[in-house]
């Protein structure tokens, strides 16, 4: 189901308009608050819902996991580096989730390519991509797998 805006919470800041990949979040010309101008074209990517600083945008979850009468809310806390979801089913059960959305402070891991040396011809001809093999730790004991790290894939959903 497409996004909709709680007009009483929206302050018309435009973060949702900036981030919408379909360019369907616009600012209403009269009320100066956000609205989804073309719900049919919304693919529920949740970008605007997460970007909204006032939690003014909501989406109904898909009927297969949350039939009518449910509530699926999300709160992206970029300062803490987490995203929290709260799913409330119509029978009253509640599921809460908290997950990381970054592991390093924002912007601290953006490579500065201007200061990197240009690749040599040999590097250009190599099958390895830029920054490989270090970036994928292939130079540190070969290919890392669950098995080589003594881990095992567990069945089912766990968190």
């Amino acid at each position: 189901m497409p996004t909709f805006v709680y007009m009483t919470r929206c302050d018309g800041c435009g973060h949702c308009v900036d981030i919408c990949p379909s360019d369907i979040m616009h600012i209403d010309k009269k009320y100066r608050r956000a609205l989804n101008i073309e719900p049919n074209m919304c693919w529920e990517c949740y970008s605007c819902v997460k970007a909204c600083p006032h939690q003014a945008i909501d989406v109904r979850g898909y009927a297969d996991f949350a039939p009518l009468g449910h509530s699926v809310r999300v709160l992206r806390d970029e300062r803490k580096g987490t995203i929290a979801w709260r799913v409330k089913f119509r029978d009253g059960r509640v599921k809460n989730f908290l997950s990381p959305i970054t592991t390093k402070p924002w912007g601290s891991a953006i490579p500065d390519f201007r200061n990197e040396a240009e690749p040599t011809q040999a590097e250009r001809d190599s099958e390895l991509l830029s920054f490989e093999p270090e970036s994928i730790r292939l130079d540190d004991g070969g290919l890392h797998t669950l098995e080589s790290n003594g881990l095992k894939l567990k069945e089912g959903v766990y968190y």
Partner: peptide
């Protein structure tokens, strides 16, 4: 201490601003 939060164990509590570093002005 939850499993899925292990990645943030050593991360600072304030990760700074992400998308909110830039003002919404591209619409």
């Amino acid at each position: 201490n939850r499993h899925s939060m292990e990645l943030l164990k050593d991360a600072p509590m304030d990760m700074g601003l992400g998308i909110k570093r830039s003002k919404p002005e591209n619409y």
